[in-house]
């Protein structure tokens, strides 16, 4: 029981400290702004560990963070293999193909208002559908290996990116387009020098949404059949063996990979759209 009470005590102390810190002037500093959520995350872990140990929760229901960490360290090669199979081969290749195709399609239909008026509502509609459901079909078509996962990812990321890119291509103002016209710029010059750069904040918005979708698509598609490696495969088989520490280890890797993927895209966005007010305000 002492574990549980210790954890609760730690939680209360850390929370009081956070409240005290948040209401001081130092809370405006960047370092403090990072420290407060970090401390909150640590208290959650401590509370988790304390609850599991204090109440004696069996490992098949909820393993303690320390046990999960031990599993991660003990099975690094397996986790690395799954990471390569699911994230690098399945999600990343699908993400690149899907986003590339979506941007290309957006540029292609950009010249025809008729197509734009027809595709946008359809795209918006499809973006709200449970597209994950096509996973079994695509697994049937493309086999069990990473190609089918990439195909699922392509379909999942395509519509959000398409809708955002089309919206972005309309973002350049009339005045700016007229300026390009007075300089005698052709369609393609206007596209590359004005409209695509102006569309970048919108495109990156779509790309950031697509990062999460890509990981979800790659992992869920593996529930429908996969070779004997991959994160989705490992999760579904480890659940079957009640090896929940392994499941949590995979989830930790997936969370880390998801955040890193998102962070990477956000970093690229920062360097590409440095001119946009939302980016300038922060620095």
């Amino acid at each position: 029981m002492s574990w549980l009470w210790g954890a609760i005590l730690f939680w209360l102390a850390a929370w009081a400290f956070n409240v005290w810190l948040a209401n001081r002037a130092v809370a405006r500093r960047q370092a403090v702004r990072l420290f407060i959520p970090a401390l909150f995350g640590v208290t959650l872990l401590v509370l988790w560990e304390g609850t599991v140990r204090g109440l004696g929760v069996p490992g098949v229901i909820l393993p303690a963070p320390s046990a999960i960490w031990a599993t991660i360290l003990a099975s690094l090669p397996i986790l690395a293999g799954d990471f390569v199979q699911t994230i690098l081969k399945g999600a990343l290749s699908g993400y690149l193909i899907g986003c590339g195709a979506a941007v290309a399609t957006a540029i292609a239909i950009d010249r025809s208002p008729f197509l734009k008026a027809g595709l946008l509502p359809v795209g918006n509609f499809v973006a709200a559908l449970p597209i994950v459901g096509i996973a079994p079909i695509l697994v049937m078509w493309f086999g069990f290996d990473w190609q089918s996962k990439a195909a699922v990812v392509v379909v999942m990321v395509f519509f959000p990116v398409l809708v955002n890119t089309v919206a972005g291509l309309g973002a350049a103002e009339r005045m700016q387009r007229d300026l390009m016209a007075t300089w005698g710029a052709g369609y393609w010059q206007t596209l590359f020098k004005l409209r695509l750069p102006a569309a970048m904040p919108f495109i990156f918005n779509g790309l950031k949404i697509a990062t999460t979708l890509a990981l979800i698509g790659a992992i869920v598609a593996e529930f429908f059949g996969s070779p004997i490696r991959g994160m989705g495969f490992r999760i579904s088989t480890a659940v079957g063996q009640l090896a929940l520490d392994m499941v949590w280890a995979e989830i930790a890797v997936a969370a880390l990979a998801g955040s890193a993927f998102y962070g990477l895209v956000a970093l690229i966005e920062k360097s590409v759209t440095f001119w946009h007010p939302s980016q300038r305000a922060r620095s």
């Binding site: 956070n18 959520p37 909150f40 999460t212 869920v220 989830i251 997936a254 955040s259 993927f261 962070g263």
Partner: peptide
């Protein structure tokens, strides 16, 4: 706000469906 909000945003980048 300072302690929960960053986690709420970060959690959107995580493939929650996997669990």
């Amino acid at each position: 706000d300072l302690s929960v909000m960053p986690w709420a945003i970060a959690s959107q980048t995580i493939p929650i469906l996997a669990i």
